[in-house]
Design a protein around this nucleic acid. Structure first.
Length: 418
RNA sequence: GUGGGUGUAGCUCAGUUGGCAGAGCACCAGGUUGUGGUCCUGGGUGUCGAGGGUUCAAGUCCCUUCACUCACCCCA
């Protein structure tokens, strides 16, 4: 075959795809129980939405966007993250005119033009949850708790929660200036020196040991929070403690998107190597204004599905997936195949997961298919059975076989598989 | 974008100083035309990632390229 998926595009096929689907379904349940509604937003947006929302100075916007011009000459960009688009949709459809906070979630593919490696793809998948319109530490704690609950539900035990506050429009500028002053005195390469002027907080995130050494005495945002931010942050931590959710204070956690304010968090997994961040998010109180909306605070997160799947593999956890087939039809001969087709359809209508052998397979091949389908029961129907208006029901786990009248077989199986 | 590693069957991988492409698992057929999973017999299912070069001869050596992967960077 002369085609393959574009570079860096992660695909999920059976059987692994069932895990992928199952963990999304688990999140849907987690979000539903907490009063979050599902919404589906544009996969591509006006390029300016991301430039203004995420920030021109970020790596995501400056060098990782898939941007193209459509036939009308508009500049469009495949979403590199969810928050800006979700907020845009909430404002556009006026959801914020109702009761606040607006609590929504969505999921789907996200795109960034990066060099792919394990856990980092050009088309990857995120779950996104946002609570828009309330400035309340309980909302911050709720979002974090929901992500935590999801990881727990999946069976992950090694996820770490890193927590920080980035301050607000009052205290952050003062800290920022102080930090710049400190950083300018260091011995750093040109790219990093440029970053000092554009987004100095991100220099703190540098992983290079020679940089980290110099940062040992760097001023920390935690020591410069205003009274409001300080008490807000303390309250968030108090509520997390009430829920028994452990976190690590991470005074240098900055994250790459410009819109974050106050509460900022990241979920890390120790078994993932360099791409250890499996989820992250934070508060974005200025984002709405930045994209031309009203003052509207918000908080939310993105959870990486791809990295979560890897984390599950590394921890050796296999989320339960629903049985794909409970009853498998094996027919001998044309007339029996016709009757079986109807029977399988009736079983499905009655809520029983049913499949049958296709392609005119012989008995042996069809039975093999029954075995591989994972079905508990095989239904065997031949000329003799048709004449007797009955079907052979074979329990594949015990090899016990009984004859059941055709008219009763749906009800009988319905009882057996429950 | 920058460095390193790896590309051989559906999967995991062997393949010597260049000399007829292999193993296990999976898959297909038969043993058994009314019985799967066990067992027995048979079958290799392949553009050795792709393109070019050296050579009597290339999976093996050289060049280019693509993909994956690890790290930087970045973040989910």
């Amino acid at each position: 075959m002369s085609f393959q998926a574009p570079k860096g595009v992660k695909e999920y096929v059976p059987p692994q795809a069932s895990t992928f689907y199952a963990i999304r379904a688990a999140f849907a349940e987690t979000a539903r129980r907490a009063g979050y509604s599902y919404l589906e937003t544009a996969v591509f947006e006006d390029t300016q939405l991301f430039a203004r929302g995420v920030g021109e100075s970020t790596d995501v916007v400056s060098k990782e966007m898939y941007t193209f011009t459509d036939r009308g000459g508009r500049s469009l960009t495949l979403r590199p993250e969810f928050t800006a688009g979700v907020l845009r949709a909430v404002l556009e459809h006026g959801l914020h005119r109702g009761q606040l906070p607006v609590k929504v979630w969505t999921d789907g593919p996200v795109f960034r033009a990066e060099a792919p490696q394990e856990g980092r793809y050009r088309q990857f998948y995120q779950l996104d949850l946002e609570a828009i319109g309330s400035e309340d530490p309980a909302v911050d704690a709720e979002t974090i708790a929901l992500a935590w609950q999801w990881y727990t539900t999946l069976g992950l035990t090694q996820v770490r929660l890193l927590l920080n506050s980035l301050g607000c429009r009052e205290c952050r500028p003062i800290y920022r200036a102080r930090l710049q002053e400190f950083l300018r005195a260091l011995d750093l390469d040109e790219a990093t020196r440029a970053r000092i002027e554009i987004n100095p907080l991100r220099v703190l995130d540098d992983k290079r040991p020679e940089v980290q050494e110099q940062l040992a005495d760097a001023p920390l945002i935690g020591d410069h929070l205003c009274a409001g931010c300080k008490s807000y942050h303390d309250r968030v931590k108090q509520l997390l403690a009430d829920l028994g959710i452990p976190w690590e204070d991470s005074p240098r956690l900055v994250r790459g998107l410009d819109y974050y304010t106050r509460t900022t968090f990241e979920f890390d997994h120790p078994l993932l190597g360099a791409q250890s961040g499996i989820g992250g998010g934070g508060r974005y109180d200025g984002l709405s204004e930045a994209i031309g909306g009203p003052a509207l605070p918000g908080i939310g997160f993105g959870l990486g599905l791809d990295r979560t799947v890897i984390a599950l593999e590394r921890e050796g956890v296999e989320p339960a997936t629903p049985a794909r087939c409970e009853v498998y039809g094996v027919a001998l001969g044309d007339e029996a195949a016709r009757a079986m087709f109807t029977l399988v359809n009736d079983l499905r209508a009655a809520g029983v997961a049913a499949d049958m052998a296709f392609g005119g397979k012989g008995l042996k091949g069809a039975m093999k298919g029954a075995d591989r389908s994972g079905a508990r029961f095989a239904l065997i129907l031949g000329e003799r059975d048709l004449a007797a208006r009955a079907v052979q029901v074979k329990d594949l786990t015990t090899a016990d076989q009984t004859e059941v009248p055709l008219a009763q077989v749906v009800d009988v199986l319905k009882g057996k598989v429950q």
